[in-house]
Amino acid sequence: MTTPAHDALELIGLRAGYGSIEVLHGVSLRVPPATVVALLGPNGAGKSTLLKVASGTITPKDGCLHVGGVHVNGADAAALARAGICRIPEGRGIFPNLTVAENLRMWTGVGDLKPAEVAERTYGRFPRLGERRKQVAGTLSGGEQQMLAMSRALLVDPAVLLLDEISMGLAPLIVAELYELVGSLAQQGIAILLVEQFAQTALAVADHAVILSHGRVTRTGTPAEVEEHLSAAYLGGAA
């Protein structure tokens, strides 16, 4: 693989927040293609906010947001989705009142996949969704809902995948299955930025790690380098 000219996602001195409250105070971060970056830090550090800014849900107040080397400050979420950004939001990133098949139809809004291809990619990976394609998504189990949410990444071939706590409330077996998928997506060349409260789960698949604390990057490095500082930043002195 040749070294690409640009990072898939780059944040430079980014400031953002909600209304008058600033949450991110100048964050810089790079995610190259085919790389998994784990974004760690205590609650309220601004991790989810960062992902929302990167996907266009929140407009940054200052700093630069680059996607594939292109300056995209101010582009809205729908436009960035077309530019290859795919954020799976915290909680379940699904439409609860739509059926499984209808959810998948929504995911294909960006590309133009044939129904057969949609079925093959999704139900091939998650046969359980295939069995429940007519079922309303809100009645699926938590694991199945997360699989459905993750299937968006399978269908839109994103350049950048932003994952917000995909393991929340899920059993370890399902978490393992989801992370296996994360690994294989990275191998396909997708740049992945991963927010995860189970630090060790995230570090196991990450190539690179960043600790965010009070809206600032306090440490970056390889998973091994960051892990030493983890308990202090993440759990206080307790662990």
């Binding site: 996907s55 809205d76 439409f95 995911w107």
Partner: peptide, 12 residues
């Protein structure tokens, strides 16, 4: 259901 998610999926 969820306007924010719809936007993330590329729908305005």
């Amino acid at each position: 259901d969820d306007p924010e998610l719809a936007a993330l999926a590329g729908t305005k």
